[in-house]
Design a protein around this nucleic acid. Structure first.
Lengths: 214, 214
DNA sequence: TTTAGTTTCCGTACATGTACGGAGTAACTT
DNA sequence: AAGTTACTCCGTACATGTACGGAAACTAAA
């Protein structure tokens, strides 16, 4: 196979895909998240509805493409706000992350609250993590904490725990907007602070397949 | 309005509703969670599809009815397993809760991972909490910890934080079954222990609408 | 008993995601 | 150049949730 032709083909495919994503963005901007339907999207780019499926396996993949754009923004914002104190830097990252989730519930839902049943085909673990820039930022700042002697243990495990707990707060706040959690941001930070206090209490071993302890 | 007739009517309505729930249960047992469709359900009880909507506002309400049954079971199981040590009792409750979530992902999703946009009409806060028996158990055991001097602060707030963190772990494990969290139950317990350690570190104020701290 | 109102149930219809198979076209192989 | 393969795009069709309006049955009031 000529790789030149293959590249050209892939390039065109990528271009069309990008056009579809742009149209999807426009649709969402104009009609809201549930205004995005395959048919409308296809009409807008001049295709038949089923043609969209040449570029996306299903609707969820389109929503994921939209959300990924938003998450790239998030990572940028997270990096922009970096206090000098390493612990405060972690707190700031969590804050920014929470603010994003609460402000973009649709994107947050499609990425973190709908089942991914694909065993990460072709994607290595490293690639998966590179694909989650927000997690990257958290982990980098955790590493800085470790270097500064403010945390002890495996950086990935520590970051994963922090992420998990922040996610718990964000997803509950999204799911139950009427439950009396108090001020939303304050609640997320409360969770973050309890998490940090808990982490400070011990050494965090890495996340291997440890035996169940109960 | 004759309250006798009204009662009879309501009774019949409740009976039919229960019949629908039973049929829904059967359908799920036979064909799996996504085998439950309004049409099949209606056919099974001899109705037209739209008649189902006299008893449930939408499909989600049916799924909630199914899930509530499962959650009642959960609370029973949680209460059955109560270690003497109050902290261990909390841990056991969280463990049971996690096991339930991981073992009944469909039910867990419909209750805790899909948006509730109804402002709890007619339901007081107390009623909402009574409607979540699992949370009740956790809170009771937290109260026991406070009484024993093992925790400090507002019981509802403490329980809410524990619930939030466990939920973070459970929901991520459900959403990303292929992400390398390690052993699932072990991961949930790790989260639980970090949470407990974090709670032990300070006094937890109640959940009022405190001002954002950042 | 008649009347008015309410509730139950249904027929029809629509928008949606997507499965399936086919037709046309471009790329690759020989 | 010819044949084969692979990809793009489409038409059609189906299952699904549910909106809408009407008919029928039941209840309450007169």
């Amino acid at each position: 196979m000529s790789s030149i032709a293959a590249n050209r083909r892939e390039l065109q495919k990528a271009e069309l895909r990008a056009e579809l994503v742009a149209a999807a963005h426009a649709l969402v901007r104009e009609e809201g998240y549930e205004g995005l339907t395959i048919r409308k999207l296809a009409t807008r780019v001049g295709y038949a509805p089923m043609s969209v499926y040449s570029y996306f396996a299903d609707k969820h993949e389109i929503l994921m493409a939209l959300a990924e754009d938003a998450f790239v923004d998030l990572a940028r914002r997270m990096r922009r706000n970096r206090p000098d104190d390493p612990l405060e830097a972690v707190r700031a990252a969590l804050t920014e992350y929470a603010e994003f989730g609460l402000g973009n519930p649709n994107e947050y839902r499609t990425v973190f609250m709908t089942e991914k049943q694909k065993p990460p085909v072709g994607k290595t673990f490293a690639e998966m993590e590179r694909g989650n820039p927000a997690f990257q930022v958290i982990m980098e700042r955790v590493e800085a904490c470790i270097a500064a002697g403010r945390m002890k243990g495996d950086a990935r495990a520590l970051a994963t725990v922090l992420w998990t707990m922040a996610h718990g707060a964000i997803s509950l706040l999204i799911t139950f907007p009427f439950y009396p959690f108090g001020d939303q941001k304050a609640y997320v930070m409360r969770i973050g602070d309890v998490a940090l206090a808990g982490l400070a209490a011990g050494v965090m071993p890495p996340l291997t397949d440890e035996p169940a302890s109960y």
